[in-house]
């Protein structure tokens, strides 16, 4: 008798009730964060009707879109069990290199490619330090973060670079598709693409397996080194794209651009359900996490709360969101 010969047609019980389906949704992390965001939104709009105007909402979306874009790359790194602290530097250096290219008279295509090249370089250096040399991701990317910052000051001497750019380039950061800002469109496209990559492709499965149990994944034939290299390159490249979009919006590359943004990006991924231990997380969760932080930031402004409080509130949200997640998995897990 052949083991693999028998295919089965046994279907799952067809009559699963709607209620069961809904109850299942409770376990989907993204739904929880989305619900939290809707509640926060409802509260804000209760106090100030301006919150729900198209104008304001689009502004909110555009404000968090760069963090959200970077969190898409970050969450893939985190799912492999790693971390990428250098995204802020990759972002800043990419915007600077793009600006310098324009300044030197290159065209839009070349300048953007050069900016993205910065990201690819960051990713390759991070990935090789981690996979070929075996540095812990925290250390490797901490190093490249610092190098990136140093380079930016060395290049700019602390003075912003403000080149002349063609009209078409500013579409990236300032344009609209209907009422929707272009950065938001890019964010949504990237979210859909990478959510599908992570859920539906072999690469995505290998990313989850590498973070879930690297040793077992390797022994199953997963080329875990290549998987890790790939996620770091993706993360840095996506971050550099965010840098280019940011430059396109203000048409000025600041020497301190992107500094500290790695923490917002990691926070978005964590709020969205990614576990720093690896193996767990989702692209949509990270984007929704960034959205939640963005909505809170907007609410703080609209409600005339001291803007310094915003950071503290964001910190509180991270702690509450992740604590709830940990408590929930304690309650549902652990039957043996």
């Amino acid at each position: 008798m052949s083991v693999s010969g028998q295919k089965t047609t046994e279907a799952t019980p067809a009559s699963s009730s709607l209620w069961r389906e809904l109850a299942q949704l409770r376990h989907v992390r993204e739904i929880n964060v989305l619900a939290a965001m809707l509640i926060v939104g409802a509260l804000i709009s209760f106090y100030t009707p301006y919150f729900l105007t198209t104008n304001n909402l689009m502004g909110v979306f555009r404000a968090f879109s760069l963090t959200a874009i970077m969190s898409i790359g970050m969450v893939m790194v985190i799912i492999t069990g790693g971390i990428d602290l250098s995204v802020g530097s990759a972002m800043g250096l990419a915007s600077l290199v793009t600006a310098l290219c324009f300044d030197a008279g290159y065209g839009t295509g070349f300048s953007i490619a050069a900016g993205l090249g910065v990201g690819v370089t960051f990713g390759l250096v991070n990935g090789l330090l981690i996979t070929a040399i075996g540095l812990p991701p925290f250390i490797a990317t901490l190093g490249t973060l610092s190098i990136g910052r140093g380079l930016m000051y060395m290049i700019t001497h602390g003075v912003p670079v403000t080149p002349d750019t063609p009209e078409v380039f500013s579409v990236l950061g300032q344009g609209y598709v209907g009422p929707v800002p272009v950065p938001v469109v890019i964010m949504l496209v990237l979210m859909v693409v990478f959510a599908l990559v992570m859920r539906r492709t072999r690469f995505g499965r290998h990313v989850y397996a590498t973070g879930g149990n690297e040793h077992a994944a390797r022994l199953s034939g997963v080329k875990t080194g290549r998987v890790k290299l790939a996620v770091y390159v993706l993360s840095s490249t996506i971050a550099s794209l965010a840098g280019i979009i940011g430059f396109s919006r203000y048409l000025s590359a600041e020497p301190a651009s992107g500094f500290g943004s790695e923490l917002d990006v990691i926070a978005a991924a964590a709020i969205g359900g990614a576990s720093l231990a690896g193996g767990v997380g989702s692209v949509t969760g990270a984007v929704i996490g960034a959205a939640l932080v963005g909505v809170i930031a907007n609410g703080v402004v609209l409600l005339n709360i001291n803007t310094y409080a915003q950071q503290a509130i964001t910190g509180g949200v991270i702690l509450i969101a992740v604590s709830l997640d940990v408590l929930r998995s304690k309650l549902t897990g652990g039957n043996g």
Partner: peptide, 27 residues
């Protein structure tokens, strides 16, 4: 070494031969 404990039976099962169920890398 054998299992990714946080993954489902299905995902662990196919990890060694995922390509068998893929077209253009989509599972």
């Amino acid at each position: 070494q054998g299992l990714v404990l946080g993954m489902s039976v299905r995902e662990n099962f196919s990890l060694t031969h995922l390509a068998d169920y893929c077209r253009l890398d989509v599972v």
